[in-house]
Amino acid sequence: MNLFGDAVAWLLDPANWQGSGSIGQRLAEHLAFTSIAVVVGVLIAVPLGWWIGHTGRGKELVVGITGAARALPSFGLIFLFVMLVGIGLRVPAAVVVLMLLAIPPVLAGAYAGFEVIDRRTIDAARAMGMTEWQILWKVEVPLGLPLLFGGLRSAVLQVVATAVLIAYIGLGGLGYDIVQGIQLRRYDQMLGSALLIIALALLLDAIFAILERYSVPRGVRAGRATDVRTTPTGRRATADEPATT
């Protein structure tokens, strides 16, 4: 237990928060890599996922990408990309690898958000005279938001965890103090930064869990409350009907 005391002491030592290579700088590097990778990943995955969800074309692509991504060792990909483009371009190489990790969960979330919408809701919107564009923005996007945020949450976690490993190609981040600690055999430093990494991951997870919960449209939440009372007949009626036509 004394080790944990040393680790906390290392974390709280003002000397470790000053100058270049300070904990604050490592944290900023970590968050910068994470946010750039996630934002770029979102810009690619969300329109693609929405397009697949709206048109129903290319569903196999989503299943294929999410399945294949799980098998790829991200640790190896970081080294592979840096060696391919050269050590001078290691910053973009790292961003690309982290972005590749962010895409599958966001893509799956964006697509699944549309997929779970009751087809009759969309038919009703169309029957009311909405254009395809209005259906997309006023029906599908709001209803699909909770699942999209769920995907975004896994993407952020994945990227934050993998960004720890970019220290191995000399890019800093919170993993730097662990890598350096291993070399210098300084367990207080390793454990201190490990605890900070865990705290950061838990904090981001909590933030996105809240976003996920509050992204449920008000109308859906109100509908759910009435649903409880009408469950016996209501649910049977929908379950027996084929979802796809």
Binding site: M1, L3, F4, L157, V160, A161, T162, V164, L165, G175, I178, Y187, M190, L191, A194, L195, I197, I198, A201, L202, D205
Partner: peptide, 18 residues
């Protein structure tokens, strides 16, 4: 299990031994 899954692997390797 949700919280455990959140912990990055390298951090877990450091925290488990002590």
């Amino acid at each position: 299990v949700g919280l455990l899954y959140t912990i990055p692997s390298l951090a877990l390797f450091v925290v488990l031994p002590p």
